[in-house]
């Protein structure tokens, strides 16, 4: 047991801890690393992670590992679950120790703040590893840790990576679907957070299901438009990582991004919300990144643009809503028909 290669999990936020827990459940006792030593002590002594997961009891086979180098050198498969803001730093540190046969699977739904790069691109830049994958889907940590059934997607250009992730995580509680569309799965996971912000805002403003259904559907259209412009497959956005994740995120008050949107609707501004949050809402950074990327590539993304203005320019919600509703009439799917309408 001691010499058996173990699986590594880097990052002990709610999702990282949940992945570690699920690995332990499927019989692959993981090493779990976090920057915060106190958190690691809590995990190894009390078997809880109160900051992120309340009192949920964690599996006893999780080993808290304070030494990132030891974890990196000893684990053939490593899950990276650190926020997009610190992702490059951690990847660069690990890059000193990683070898080309190791498998990296990240589960981060965001884009790098300044470069707007996807996490798999950062891993390619900072490490020598090629066997890189992404895990993404409708995965609310608290539901999964409670053992409720769920499903997720692992995407990689390498069949080996998908197979490794599946062998490690698939259980009667969690189904794993494979994909080759890394770009699509990463963008779907990141961009749905923007729509989740908007969904929270719509509900917080007191609108009902009609409005929200419109928002989600049209939101998915613009997210798909953005994804295909970056080489993703449109079908990916109809799958678990796209539609599936959006349904979970936008329906559940458990979602942080939804929560931020809700509070914006209640009159708080982003500065106030940020100060009171313990967890990071990836959707805020992503909104900024996607707004500028779409602008430079001339991709029409009205909902994202509205959320950007709401967050960062303190535009008035009523004005934004009026602008969205007053957009030019168009056909739903056929761009040629659109022109004939003018």
């Amino acid at each position: 047991m001691a010499n058996r290669p173990r699986v590594g999990v880097v990052g002990a936020g709610s999702w990282g801890t949940t992945i570690a827990h699920m690995l332990a459940v499927t019989g692959h006792p993981p090493l779990l690393w976090a920057r915060d030593r106190r958190l690691l002590t809590e995990i190894s002594t009390q078997r809880t992670n109160r900051q992120y997961l309340d009192d949920a009891p964690l599996h006893p086979d999780i080993t808290a590992e304070p030494d990132l180098e030891r974890l990196t050198r000893s684990c053939p498969v490593i899950f990276l679950v650190v926020p997009s803001t610190g992702f490059r730093d951690v990847a660069a540190r690990m890059g000193d120790w990683l070898q080309g046969d190791q498998i990296l699977i990240h589960a981060v739904k965001g884009l790098e703040r300044d470069t707007f790069k996807r996490m798999s691109v950062i891993l390619r830049e900072e490490t020598c590893c090629r066997k890189i994958g992404v895990l993404s889907g409708p995965n609310l940590a608290r539901e999964l840790i409670a053992g409720q059934p769920g499903a997720t997607v692992i995407a990689s250009r390498f069949g080996e990576v998908v197979a490794a992730g599946r062998d490690l995580l698939m259980s009667l509680h969690l189904r794993i679907y494979g994909s080759r569309d890394v770009t699509g799965v990463e963008l779907a996971g990141a961009l749905k957070n923007v729509i989740a912000l908007a969904a929270g805002f719509v509900n917080g403003s007191g609108f009902g299901d009609n409005t929200k259904a419109m928002l989600l559907t049209r939101g998915m259209v613009e997210v798909t438009r953005f994804g295909t412009a970056h080489g993703a497959l449109p079908d990916t956005f109809q799958g678990l990582a796209g539609m599936g994740d959006m349904m979970a995120t936008c329906a559940s008050p458990l979602s942080r991004n939804y929560n931020v949107g809700w509070r914006l609707a209640k009159g708080e501004n982003w500065g106030q919300i940020k100060r009171s949050m313990t967890m990071i809402a990836e959707g805020v950074n992503t909104t900024r990144a996607v707004y500028f990327m779409a602008k430079s590539l001339d991709i029409d993304m009205p909902i994202t643009a509205a959320m950007y203005r709401l967050l960062f320019t303190r535009a008035h919600p009523a004005t934004l809503l009026r602008e969205l509703m007053a957009r030019k009439a168009k056909y739903e799917t056929d761009p040629c028909a659109e022109q004939s309408l003018i």
Binding site: A92, G95, D96, Q99, G100, D101, R124, E125, E126, T127, C128, R130
Partner: peptide, 12 residues
């Protein structure tokens, strides 16, 4: 690699 660190390519 991209950061100028030596890579043992047989591991790939």
């Amino acid at each position: 690699d991209n950061r100028g660190r030596q890579v043992d390519i047989t591991r790939y």
